[in-house]
Amino acid sequence: MKIDATKPLEYGSEENSNKIFGFWIFLGAEIALFSTLFTVYFVLVNRYATGPNGTELFELSGVLWETFLLLTSSFTIGLAVHSMRLGLKKPMMIFFGLTLLMGLGFLGIEITEFFTYVHEGASISTSAFTSSLFVLLGTHGAHVSFGILWGASILLQVKRQGFTLATANKSFIFSLYWHFLDVVWIFIFSFVYLKGLM
């Protein structure tokens, strides 16, 4: 396979740049997906029937921790890609690993919150509002979970193979995915939690 040395390794072949371009389109489709979920949420947010509403349910502290972890992890994955471009394998793996750990932390808090919600009488079947809340958060959470598994497998490949066309490409694409999840979270934080608490 020809390697184009004038570009960063992740763009180093036609196949690689196609994959990155394809992933951007995939993210476009993901934006459509999350927009639909947000629309569903906005339509149903006031239809909480006899169940609790957002103001009663949400607590800021956990959410702030989640936001902190995810924003920081978006920063560390950026550092990981930067290290990769400099060819520094160990720092890259450290930052990448940190990203995944923070993702795990985020997930831990989110799952605890879900348990609290259910404990407070807001399960997925309580009302249209809780259904849409759980599905919106759950879809994002499922993306994060999938990202952690996917990222772990990439980390393992980087560890074994070092920076190759394939691993550099995968790591970069993973960073795009992770930033995207961060952006979605910012929307969830602002339009679900902050708006719900107001």
């Binding site: 239809r47 909480y48 009302s127 249209a128 809780t130 259904s131 759980f134 599905v135």
Partner: peptide
């Protein structure tokens, strides 16, 4: 869940 149901706000 209660997205399209006839009760609980669907």
């Amino acid at each position: 869940s209660q997205f399209f149901t006839m009760s609980n706000g669907g």
